[in-house]
């Protein structure tokens, strides 16, 4: 564990807590993409299958369960709990049907694992989750574009979610530099870079709006 990875995990935790706070305080899911949450749940469920096969640490196991539980709760809240259910506007969260993200990532993961010769289902699903996570934020970014003006807590939720994987990139640099036996996984680096790159323009408008004060508004 290193400071970058810990900061990244804490950023991810903060993002989930801020999203929960935002849902509770605004009593609606307007401006929040349910699709993004569902994609993240698929990411966690396919990535953390080793929960049952490999024990790394209490922290690692606890966080995996916490991510799956919190994301499941958020999806349940928006889908089934009032007032979120009646206020959720699926037509505003219509970009990127889940299958159009899942299918290419599944194909790419299968291909990558064939090339690498790692054919265990756990490895293939793990690789699939690495690719899928890069796309998971796309529906949320489109919902932000739709509503243009970004509500304060929603802005923080997206910012910390983007910062988490950006900090992981620093963690990979650190590990490749300091850990003698660390084996590189270029698929993870590329996917993490693409994922973080998708946030770049949001980061820009977020930082500018925080620096100059005023509302966070995204250009059309």
């Amino acid at each position: 564990m290193n400071i970058f990875r810990f900061a990244g995990d804490m950023s991810h935790v903060v993002s989930i807590l801020v999203l929960l706070l935002r849902l509770r305080s605004s009593k609606s899911a307007v401006g929040i993409s349910l699709k993004t949450q569902e994609l993240f749940l698929i990411v966690f469920v396919t990535r953390y299958l080793d929960l049952f096969t490999t024990f790394y640490s209490l922290y690692n196991s606890f966080m995996k369960v916490a991510y799956i539980a919190s994301t499941t709760y958020i999806i349940w809240m928006i889908r089934f709990q009032e007032p979120y259910k009646s206020k959720y506007d699926a037509s505003q969260d219509s970009f990127l049907h889940i299958k159009f993200a899942v299918a290419p990532c599944a194909g790419l993961a299968l291909f990558a694992c064939l090339v690498k010769g790692e054919l265990s289902p756990i490895d293939i699903l793990w690789t699939f989750s690495i690719f899928l996570e890069a796309l998971a934020i796309v529906p949320q970014l489109f919902v932000l574009q739709r509503y243009r003006e970004v509500e304060n807590l929603t802005g923080h939720y997206v910012f910390f979610l983007g910062a988490y994987r950006g900090l992981y990139i620093l963690n990979w640099v650190y590990r490749s530099y300091y850990e003698q036996f660390y084996r590189h996984n270029w698929l993870v680096y590329v996917s993490g870079a693409v994922q973080t790159a998708l946030y770049v323009d949001f980061f820009y408008y977020y930082v500018v709006s925080k620096y100059y004060g005023g509302k966070l508004t995204l250009p059309t």
Binding site: H12, Y56, M63, Y67, Y168, E179, Y182, N185, V188
Partner: peptide, 10 residues
């Protein structure tokens, strides 16, 4: 042993 690349991460 060789830390399984990124498998021990979240």
């Amino acid at each position: 042993g060789a830390a399984a690349a990124a498998k021990d991460e979240l």
